[in-house]
């Protein structure tokens, strides 16, 4: 069918049926060509990270093609994965992200259930307000927060600045508004008959939430948790402003501030550190891509 259409179209381009098939083929080929170009553009930096991470310092400064590894080595990986400093960054990142995801999920599931289903005075305004808070950027809040923590230190004697756990207090401001917002969307889509039935059976609101809403909206909860994890893993400004000692830093800041020091950049190690730092969200994404995309699009489409 396609071959006849092709030859027919080649002989008489004006023929209607033939030109549509030919156009479709042309569009398809064109799409593949441009997609390959865009994929090259989008994947060059991570690939180049990987290429550099396999090189020795000698090869990096040698006069050979930077786009190829001539004598691959895992030395950079071994060095970093046995370096106590780098492992501390990793541990801090894991601790902060885990706590933040846990806090975010508890707070936003409770709040979303309350705002989507139970309603109270001002709950509709609050739901919109939550979305608006999501729009207030971290770059507007870090200076007053910095000052507030200094003030709280004077007041209570607890040192907030330069401890990794201060990030656990701050990061939820980045994750909770958006997670609550998408959870409201997921919870609202659950049919009302379901909770009426459960309430008639004598379920309490807490049971309604844990036995019906959470299981039914599980895909949404996973999407929100992935979002919270990605955001807290990638956050850069707050740790840069609030933590300084090497043992309190999280990965992104740790790599930027400790591996880049002085005039001699060890690019092999920097790229390895950056790649390992990007690995957890990338692995999560590789396995849970659909949830990831659902979370991304939910904010705009469910609104």
């Amino acid at each position: 069918m396609t071959t006849t259409a092709q030859t027919y179209a080649g002989a008489a381009p004006s023929a209607r049926g033939g030109s549509i098939t030919r156009n479709r083929r042309k569009v398809l080929i064109l799409s593949y060509v441009f997609l390959v170009l865009f994929v090259i553009f989008f994947l060059t930096p991570p690939l180049y990270m990987f290429i550099t991470s396999l090189k020795t310092s000698a090869e990096i400064s040698a006069e050979v093609s930077p786009w190829w590894v001539f004598s691959p080595t895992l030395a950079n990986y071994i060095q970093l994965l046995t370096s106590p400093v780098y492992l501390t960054f990793f541990r801090n990142s894991i601790l902060v992200s885990t706590f933040v995801v846990a806090i975010t999920m508890v707070v936003s599931i409770l709040a979303a259930f309350s705002l989507a289903r139970m309603k109270f005075w001002g709950s509709a305004t609050l739901a919109t307000g939550v979305f608006l808070t999501y729009l207030i950027p971290d770059t507007l809040l870090f200076i007053p927060m910095f000052k507030t923590f200094a003030f709280l230190h004077d007041l209570t004697g607890i040192e907030f600045i330069n401890h990794w756990w201060v990030l656990v207090i701050i990061y939820p401001t980045l994750t909770i508004p958006f997670c609550t917002w998408i959870m409201i969307g997921y919870f609202s889509s659950i049919p009302k008959e379901l909770d009426e039935a459960a309430l008639i059976d004598g379920a309490s609101y807490m049971q309604l939430l844990t036995k019906i809403f959470v299981p039914v909206a599980l895909p949404g909860i996973i999407a929100a948790a992935i979002f919270a994890f990605t955001v807290s893993w990638a956050q850069f400004l707050y740790p840069l402003a609030f933590t300084t000692s090497t043992d309190q830093l999280v990965l992104p800041v740790g790599i930027v501030t400790t591996l880049i020091k002085g005039d001699v950049f060890n690019w092999g190690q920097i790229m390895t550190g950056a790649l390992l730092g990007a690995a957890p969200p990338l692995i999560l994404y590789a396995f849970l891509m659909d949830y990831y995309i659902a979370g991304l699009t939910a904010g705009a489409t469910k609104g």
């Binding site: 930096p45 991570p46 893993w233 790229m271 990338l282």
Partner: peptide, 13 residues
């Protein structure tokens, strides 16, 4: 993929 990598990391690349 570019959206998934933490921006501070990919900017290093």
């Amino acid at each position: 993929v570019p959206w998934v990598i933490p921006p501070a990391m990919s900017t290093l690349a």
